[in-house]
Design a protein around this nucleic acid. Structure first.
Length: 438
RNA sequence: GCGGUCAUAGCUCAGUUGGUUAGAGCACAGGAUUGUGAAUCCUGGGGUCGCGGGUUCGAGUCCCGUUGGCCGCCCCA
């Protein structure tokens, strides 16, 4: 057993694991690019204040934080939102609108390990700044769907729940509830799915029992699962804010439907999301079977940039974590196995032939082909076995007889046919083979 | 932070009521095989039995502690 092991919750990526992670990152990047998002990155280590200012003292318990040698209180980033808000805020006036940014980065939280959750994890983050209307949500939800669909997942595998903190506020206001109590009710709504009636316990302790008439309405509102039901409930109340908000909902859902994504999106007002900074639409992606943690989450946070010292700048964003997502891909058999496969494997006779082969090997590699060969002298039989197992399409045979004739034997490892090629033509011949010529 | 459960080779595991030098399969490496691919056979490397203490003539095995993994709770991207 090794003397040293990795810290609890941290991951090591052996080549096979690294290839899987690369596969995920590659498709996320590609998706972000097709949606016109620009990629950025930022420091892993940030001033502790950045997170205290944003999320309150409680999140500090989950931070990897310490004092550096200069006496600064610092923390490993637990999420990207405060950082990206600082970056955008600092240059907001110089950035072309809309500001569409994305990143793939690793984050750290000092938490108890569990399935789909570790102390370090990677997230794909995407945000749009400077767009107050539901057009921004349209872009982000569409991209969120594509970030999962790009791997072959369908509406039978996952869906996105859409909710709205503004709508809750306006509705509860219309019922005559003041702001502190609204927050209390939202806390109960957040927990209702899991705890049922128990969810209101915290509210009752703080504010006393919720009026029965109000509670019935809250419970009914919470179970709304369609735009039609929403309109039905709110239509009778009216009011400028609610009417305008309903128009936003219609626009967002209409946009998503026009993109052909309606089958991925479900209205679910039971989602309000715990993070305090969300200010409008919020959404979360889940696997359809309901076996895993949330795959992704996001929402609007219009006040964050300003709170961190920047200009007033509306913002929406979401994040997809890599751990739960990888579990889902594996469950659905959508995680390919990755092997490093050479294009060409060279079978080499002895020391003299080896030197003859090296020139071609390097020339082929410089031409962009993946070429491998045994580092040590090995019996022919074994070399051919290795060549076949490597997955290479062709083997180049550098034997004494061939070298003497100034040729190389090219073996097609798929159909086992062989032919001789003048050594001077090796690169051109290999190129023809792979471009379809043969 | 709380509870359950587990820990023997790189992986999957066996190891008798406590008894000599801890085993197998797979994987890896070498050979049988100095000119051609899935087989077979032989050989080899690799272990502080998670770590520490205790009981015992003797501990992989029993007891206590500890660390780590997994699962659930709390919390929450």
């Amino acid at each position: 057993m090794a003397t040293f092991q990795s810290l609890p919750g941290f991951r090591e990526f052996y080549p096979e694991d690294f290839a899987r992670r690369n596969h995920i990152f590659r498709l996320w990047r590609q998706t972000a690019s097709t949606f016109g998002f620009a990629e950025y990155d930022a420091p892993v280590l940030e001033p502790l204040e950045l997170y205290k200012a944003k999320s309150g003292e409680e999140i500090e318990a989950q931070l990897f934080s310490f004092t550096d040698k200069g006496g600064r209180e610092v923390a490993l980033r637990p999420e990207m939102t405060p950082t990206v808000c600082r970056l955008v805020g600092a240059k907001a006036s110089a950035l072309k609108r809309p500001i569409k940014w994305s990143s793939i980065a690793e984050f750290y939280r000092y938490e108890r390990m569990q399935k789909g959750r570790g102390r370090c994890f990677s997230q794909f983050n995407a945000d749009i700044f400077g767009e107050p209307g539901p057009e921004a949500e349209t872009e982000l939800i569409a991209m969120l769907v594509q970030c999962l669909a790009a791997f072959g997942l369908t509406e039978q595998d996952f869906y996105v729940k859409l909710s709205d903190r503004n709508l809750w506020f306006y509705y509860l206001e219309a019922l005559g509830i003041d702001e502190p109590r609204i927050r209390g009710v939202l806390g109960a709504v957040d927990r209702f799915e899991k705890y049922g009636e128990e969810a209101f316990k915290g509210y009752t302790e703080q504010f006393g029992p919720l009026d029965d008439g109000v509670k019935i309405k809250v419970l009914a509102f919470l179970q709304i699962k369609s735009l039609a039901a929403l309109e039905h409930t709110l239509g009778s109340i009216g009011g400028e804010k609610l009417t305008a908000r309903l128009a936003d909902w219609k626009k967002l859902l209409g946009n998503l439907e026009a993109m052909g994504l309606a089958r991925f999106v479900e209205v679910d007002l039971g989602v309000v999301r715990g993070l305090a900074y969300y200010t409008g639409f919020v959404f979360e992606a889940f696997d359809r079977k309901g076996e895993l943690r949330a795959l992704a989450g996001g929402g609007r946070y219009d006040e964050m940039v300003q709170k961190l010292g920047g200009p007033a700048l509306p913002a929406v964003g979401f994040a997809v974590g890599d751990m739960t997502f990888a579990l889902l891909l594996e469950q659905r058999g959508l995680m390919p196995t990755f092997v490093q496969v050479p294009d060409v494997y060279c079978v080499i006779g002895g020391a003299a032939e080896r030197h003859a082969a090296f020139g071609d090997i390097h020339a082929l590699r410089a031409a962009g082909y993946r070429v491998d060969y045994p580092l040590k002298e090995v019996a022919f039989g074994k070399q051919f076995k290795v060549a076949a197992e490597s997955g290479a399409k062709i083997a180049l045979l550098y034997g004494g007889d061939e070298i003497a004739k100034g040729v190389v034997k090219l073996r097609d490892l798929t159909d086992r046919s062989e032919r001789e090629v003048p050594q001077a033509d090796v690169v051109a011949t290999v190129r023809d083979f792979f471009t379809g010529g043969r």
